[in-house]
């Protein structure tokens, strides 16, 4: 079954530093901005929810039609990992977030990476896509 999934890492000041369409559904032109809009709007909800819980994985926090937004909040630089998806696989999503978080920390450890700047590592990209295939 074709699924939609859009993964994004949002850094301080709501600046997206990484984005990837990891779904299996064929890519549509208008989907790109629609996904961004939904994720962007969901930040409002994250802002409220993030301080009410100590968990990093916030589960599904927002929805638009049949698309659900799951968010994982990290401690570093107010970075949020956001996933827009239409599947209902909470455990998989949680594992996905945890592993991507680990990858992201490795990126942060790179002394040449300026925190808060765009993640351009192709290695990171392939790893994320592989994780998406495994868990989502």
């Amino acid at each position: 079954m074709a699924s939609t999934a859009c993964f994004m890492i949002v850094s301080r000041n709501d600046i997206p530093i990484y984005e990837a369409e990891v779904g299996t559904a064929p890519k549509k032109e208008e989907a790109a901005h629609q996904h961004q809009f939904i994720l962007h709007a969901a930040l409002d909800v994250v802002q409220d929810l993030a301080w009410t819980t100590s968990a990093m994985f916030l589960k599904s926090i927002d929805r638009f039609n049949d698309l659900v937004v799951s968010v994982y909040v990290t401690a570093a630089l107010h970075t949020r990992l956001m996933l827009l998806h239409d599947s209902r696989n909470d455990d998989g999503i949680k594992s996905f977030f945890q592993e991507v978080h680990e990858l992201y920390i490795k990126i942060l450890l790179n002394p040449l990476y300026l925190p808060g700047s765009r993640v351009t590592s192709s290695h990171f990209d392939t790893k994320v896509r592989a994780l998406a295939r495994r868990y989502l």
Binding site: D14, F37, I38, H40, A41, A42, L43, D44, V45
Partner: peptide
């Protein structure tokens, strides 16, 4: 309404306007 909410939810505001 999103704009008037306290605290105002600007991103939702923008999204719904779009």
């Amino acid at each position: 309404c999103y704009l008037l909410a306290k605290p105002s939810m600007l991103r939702k505001y923008g999204f719904h306007l779009i």
